[in-house]
């Protein structure tokens, strides 16, 4: 088991400084529990405002949660500090939602992808160059030399997302959180991104937490899925079972809302 989430609760409330009272707040994640095995692709499916993105941010320790426990590789994520936190950051990576915003506009593709190596002090310049080249080619940005010197605004949406994937994969993480990686892309490009992710999963045996609102994408990519609604998980199971035999009412609504080629 690589990730274990137990009863996690996250509330947002405005905490005033010095004066005023905190308000009632919004519960974004309300007692969520699930676990992900090594090399497994786990889908978290839900509508906007369901708390699925927040859960991803909590797992990455981009935000702190209120109660509950998140264990990654046996370590409690909440207590990570200093060198342990840095080691954690090497093992878990994020593929972001918006490829137009996730690369620093002042960084060339090479600098963006090499940055994690620089931060973790891996290799010298030459070794980094090799790794970046491999990562670019693995992500389908070949020949690497023609992409590495470009800036984000010189790339198309799909190319940017491939660069973001190269950056996420360069540290050889054990676990990747993909937060709606294709919601901003055209259908055929998102299909090729899914194919790329499937290839990475196969070749590197990486576990994924795939956050999406799109059941069809989850069906294509995930081994198991959990349906999340208003901060709670309403149904979990193997993807096929959940989609073909939904038990929960919300899951049923979600499935019925998918566009169908019904021609009526």
């Amino acid at each position: 088991m690589i990730l274990e989430i137990k009863n996690v609760v996250k509330q947002y409330r405005s905490k005033p400084f010095l004066f005023g009272k905190p308000d009632a707040g919004v519960t974004a994640v309300d007692g969520v529990s699930f676990s992900i095995e090594k090399g497994e692709v786990f889908g978290l499916v839900g509508g906007s405002g369901s708390g699925k993105t927040t859960l991803g941010r909590l797992t990455l320790k981009l935000e702190d949660f209120d109660t509950g426990e998140i264990r990654f590789d046996g370590m409690s994520v909440r207590d990570l500090k200093g060198p342990a936190l840095k080691a954690f950051r090497r093992k878990i990576q994020l593929i972001p939602q918006d490829p137009y915003q996730s690369l620093n506009p002042y960084f060339s593709v090479y600098d963006s992808i090499a940055e994690p190596l620089v931060i973790h002090g891996i290799g010298n310049d030459e070794a980094r160059g090799d790794l970046v080249k491999q990562a670019l080619e693995m992500s389908g940005l070949a020949p690497a030399a023609s992409y590495s010197s470009r800036y984000p605004h010189q790339l198309s949406g799909g190319q940017r997302q491939r660069a973001a994937i190269a950056r996420a994969m360069i540290l050889d993480p054990e676990f990747v959180i993909a937060d709606e990686p294709t919601s901003m892309l055209d259908a055929s490009i998102s299909f090729s991104i899914f194919k790329l992710l499937s290839k990475i999963k196969r070749e590197k045996n990486v576990a994924f937490l795939f956050i999406t609102h799109d059941l069809a994408a989850a069906r294509f990519f995930c081994d198991r899925i959990a349906v999340i609604h208003k901060g709670r998980i309403v149904e979990t199971g193997p993807t096929k079972d959940v989609i073909e035999n939904p038990k929960d009412d919300y899951t049923k609504t979600l499935i019925n809302a998918q566009p169908r080629f019904s021609y009526t």
Binding site: A187, S188, F191, F194, A216, R260
Partner: peptide
């Protein structure tokens, strides 16, 4: 045809 075959649906 390419567009349609890259379109994922819930039925797989």
């Amino acid at each position: 045809i390419a567009l349609l075959s890259s379109h994922l649906t819930i039925d797989g």
